[in-house]
């Protein structure tokens, strides 16, 4: 729990001078994601701790190596939380969560870590420690460098501090379970999403649809009554197992694919599916080849990625067009001219 930024900055400067590629990491809880990284390991794990927390401003600033567990504990003391419900995966840090843009079941309704980042500091590939964004909700001066880091997997710089918008903990929560098939589930999820209000989770797996409502007790009770279905006892367990990928669906070695698509896109069938985020995030266990699944994802207005397992030496993200690729390379050049940060982690060519 200390400020190690001077040390981290020094390490990056040395790497620049020696032209040594760096493998940036926190607690390496998401090493399975992306492409395998090469380079000298540089970890933010020791660079941890709260910098500023102002509950009534709904803003918290932390060092990037702070674990989600530590942060959640502090927020919880003030009746607050990270709205995006990111997975812990056994020690996730705030910096890594942002770099991998990881969000949990509440994402369609409360937003993602990308949505909630207000500002950050990062060390770029010129060895400069820079600050972007701020500690206020609205800030349109300069480009949104903070949100650009979400999903960049550390390829643009070493994140050292993150400022996030936080949310009040819901006063009450309840989950309804309905036994339906995937097509029916998509219909109900769409219907429930269109009602707004306290919906905070909608997931279909193994023939069951789980609908979570969170908010003021009276509102949750009313919604649950109207929805019908069985109320799930101890529902926290289901949602945390979903978030942490501990449900039976996620076990075994078959490649785990993720399709991010229009929430009401027709169910594709043919394999083991888990539909989350009201249909906007779909998981598939399948050994089918990439081109076949890419075509399937595109038919759903979606993007494919190979989330876990499978052949990770090739590309694992939906291929960009030539024009998109050119912009990716130009931005990489703008941040990391020597190509030292996590080379090949996002794409083989970047």
């Amino acid at each position: 729990m200390a400020d190690r930024s001077t040390e981290l900055l020094e390490r990056v400067r040395q790497a620049i001078a020696a032209n040594t590629p760096l493998r940036l990491t926190g607690n390496d809880s998401k090493g399975f994601m992306g492409r395998p990284a090469t380079g000298e390991i540089l970890s933010t794990a020791e660079h941890a701790g709260l910098i500023e927390y102002e509950p009534t401003e709904l803003v918290v600033a932390v060092r990037s190596g702070t674990t989600l567990a530590e942060l959640s504990e502090r927020l919880d003391q003030h009746g607050q939380c990270l709205g995006s419900e990111p997975p812990d995966f056994g020690g996730a840090t705030v910096g890594g969560t942002l770099a991998c843009n990881q969000s949990g079941p509440a994402r369609p309704w409360l937003g993602s870590v990308r949505d909630h980042v207000l500002g950050l500091r990062l060390v770029n590939g010129r060895g400069e420690h820079l600050h972007f964004g701020g500690r206020v909700m609205k800030n349109v001066a300069g480009y949104d460098v903070s949100r650009l880091q979400a999903g960049a997997m550390g390829t643009l710089g070493l994140i050292t501090e993150v400022t996030l918008r936080v949310f009040p903990l819901p006063e009450h929560q309840a989950t309804a379970v309905l036994e339906v098939d995937a097509d029916q589930a998509l219909g109900i999820m769409s219907e429930e999403s269109a009602k707004g209000g306290p919906l905070s989770g909608a997931c279909w797996v193994d023939g069951h649809l789980y609908l979570r409502f969170s908010g003021l007790a009276a509102a949750v009770a009313e919604r649950l009554r109207r929805r019908g279905g069985e109320a799930l006892q101890g529902d926290d367990r289901f949602w945390s197992d979903l978030r942490e990928q501990q449900l039976e669906f996620f076990s075994g070695n078959e490649p785990l694919w993720r399709i991010s698509c229009r929430s009401a896109a027709e169910h594709a069938g043919g394999g083991a599916w888990l539909l989350d985020w009201g249909g906007a995030q779909r998981w598939l266990r399948s050994a089918r080849p990439w081109p076949e699944l890419q075509a399937l994802a595109e038919g759903m207005g979606g993007q494919l990625s190979l989330y876990r397992g499978g052949e990770r030496g090739g590309e694992v993200l939906h291929p960009p067009t030539t024009a998109q690729k050119r912009l990716h390379l130009a931005l990489k050049q703008a941040f990391d001219p020597q190509g030292l940060f996590n080379p090949g982690r996002l794409y083989s060519w970047m």
Binding site: L148, C261, L317, A323, Q324, H328, L331
Partner: peptide
Amino acid sequence: EQLTVGGEGLDSCGLDLMALLTGS
């Protein structure tokens, strides 16, 4: 040259060009 940024789902692959474009 014409290109698409972001996607029809909630999250997109690669660098978040949609975020960079917004407010630019």
